[in-house]
Design a binder for these strands. Structure first.
Lengths: 221, 221
DNA sequence: CACAATGTACGAACTAGTGAGTTAGTCATA
DNA sequence: TATGACTAACTCACTAGTTCGTACATTGTG
C-alpha cells in the first residue's frame, strides 16, 4: 500500500494532486474492504480524507472507477512482492516452498486485499474486466512456478503431470481461504485460522501439502 | 369438518404462511447471493415474490434478520448432505477421498451458498454470531473426518500429526476457492476453474492432494 | 492571467421501514 | 349447521432519512 506520507515537501504545498489522489485511494481501499462496494459510502470516504467528495469525482470520475483504481493498486502490490522473489539458487523443493510461503505471508499481511478480491468476485470480476491495466498483467509468481516446475520435473523430483496454473490455484486456495473465511470458519468450528500462535503450523502445513502433492507417487488408483 | 393438522390445500392456497415464507427465503437467497447484503434491495426482493414487502417485515422483522434466515437455511442444506455420507465401510484412503469429493460436489452445485459465505465473511460472521441456530450446529463432516483420521492413523496409513479441523480447512479451501474466486482467477489467468470439461481433473487433484498430504513421509526437514 | 485544483451547496432518486386498514380462515356455541 | 367473534395473513400508501452525483463559485500557482 502506498503510504500517505509522501515526498517531504519543503514548503507546505497546499495543492498536491498526487498526494490527494493517493490519500483518496488509501481511504477508499480501507472502506471498500471494510464494507464492500455497495456498502461503502462516497460521502464517508470523502469525510475520512482531508479533501472533499468533489475531488473523488474530479480525479476518479465516480464510485465505480474509484473501486477499479483501488483494485489496480492492490493487485500491483502483490505483483511487486512476487517480482522480488529470488529462488533461482534453490533446489525445486525448497523453491516451491519458498514461493508458497511468500503467498502465505502476503495474504496474511494484506487482509484488505483478500477482502477486495472476495468483493470483486461477488461482482463477477467486472471491474477487472473493465480495467485495461489489470487485463494485461501476468503473474510473476506464475512464471516462477513454471520454471521451478520444469526443473523439478526434469530432474524427476516432481511428478510430471502438474500444471503451473493449477499449482498456483492450489497454493492460493489455502492462503486465501485462511484469511478470507477466517470469520465464518472461526464462528462455526471455534478455531481462528489466523491465530498468531498457529501461524507457523499453517505455514508448514501449506508447504507440506504442496510438496507432498508434487512428489507423491500417483500410480495407485 | 375433519380437521387434519396439515393444511393440505391441494392448490387453492391463497393464504399459506409457510409457502409465503419459503418463497421470500428463496428469492432473498438468490438476491443476497447475487449482489451482497448491502447491494440487495428489500423492494427488489419483494417485487420478485408474489407477495409484498410488508410480508418480509411481517415474517422476518427486517433485512438483517432476513439475511440471517437465509444463511441458516443455506448452512442447513450442506449439513444435510454431510449427514447423508456413508463411508464407514471404506478404507481410510477411499473414505477421505469420498468425503473430499462430497465437499467438492456440494460447493460446485451450490455457488449461491459459496457467495453467501463470502458475503458473511465480509461482515465478519456477525449474522452467524447473532444466530442461535447457527451458533450451536456442529459439522457432521468433521465427525466423519475425526473417525476416518483416527482409523487411518492407527493403522499406520496416515501420518500421525494431522488434525481433523485442519484437514477440513484444507479440503474446504480448495473447493471454496475454485467456486468463490472463479471470476477473478479466470480474468487474471485465463482459466475457468469451474469449466465442466475440467471438472474431473480438479476433483482428482483435490483427492490426490489430500491423500498425498496424509500419507507423505514428513521426516525430511 | 489561465487553468488546475478545490470547496460549498444542493437535488433527484432511492431505500428501509411503518401505520393503518382489510380479508380469509378457524373455532366455539347455540 | 349457521353465526359471529377472533386472529393470522395480507395490501396499500406513505415517510424520514440517505446517497450519488453535479452546478457553480473560489483559490492558488506557474
Amino acid at each position: 500500500m502506498t503510504s500517505v506520507e509522501e515526498p517531504a515537501r519543503p514548503n507546505g504545498r497546499i495543492r498536491d494532486a498526487a498526494r490527494t489522489k493517493a490519500e483518496i485511494l488509501d481511504v477508499a481501499t480501507r472502506e471498500f474492504a471494510r464494507v464492500g462496494f455497495a456498502g461503502a459510502r462516497v460521502d464517508d470516504i470523502a469525510a475520512l480524507t482531508s479533501t472533499t467528495k468533489r475531488m473523488i469525482y474530479y480525479y476518479f470520475g465516480g464510485k465505480e472507477q474509484l473501486f477499479t483504481a483501488v483494485l489496480e493498486r492492490a493487485y500491483g502490490v502483490i505483483r511487486e512482492a512476487e517480482q522480488g522473489l529470488d529462488v533461482e539458487h534453490l533446489d525445486p523443493v525448497a523453491a516451491i516452498r519458498r514461493l508458497a510461503e511468500l503467498t502465505f505471508d502476503h495474504h496474511e499481511a494484506h487482509p484488505d486485499f483478500i477482502r477486495l478480491v472476495s468483493i470483486e468476485n461477488i461482482h463477477e470480476a467486472e471491474h477487472i474486466a473493465a480495467s485495461e491495466k489489470l487485463g494485461r498483467i501476468g503473474s510473476p509468481a506464475l512464471d516462477v512456478i513454471r520454471r521451478i516446475l520444469k526443473s523439478g520435473q526434469e530432474s524427476g523430483l516432481f511428478t510430471a503431470d502438474v500444471d503451473a496454473v493449477d499449482l498456483h490455484a492450489m497454493i492460493s486456495s489455502f492462503c486465501f481461504f485462511r484469511v478470507a473465511n477466517r470469520h465464518t470458519f472461526g464462528a462455526l468450528f471455534g478455531r481462528d485460522l489466523v491465530d498468531p500462535a498457529q501461524r507457523e503450523h499453517y505455514r508448514n502445513m501449506l508447504g507440506d501439502m504442496v510438496i507432498a502433492y508434487l512428489t507423491a507417487d500417483r500410480t495407485a488408483g
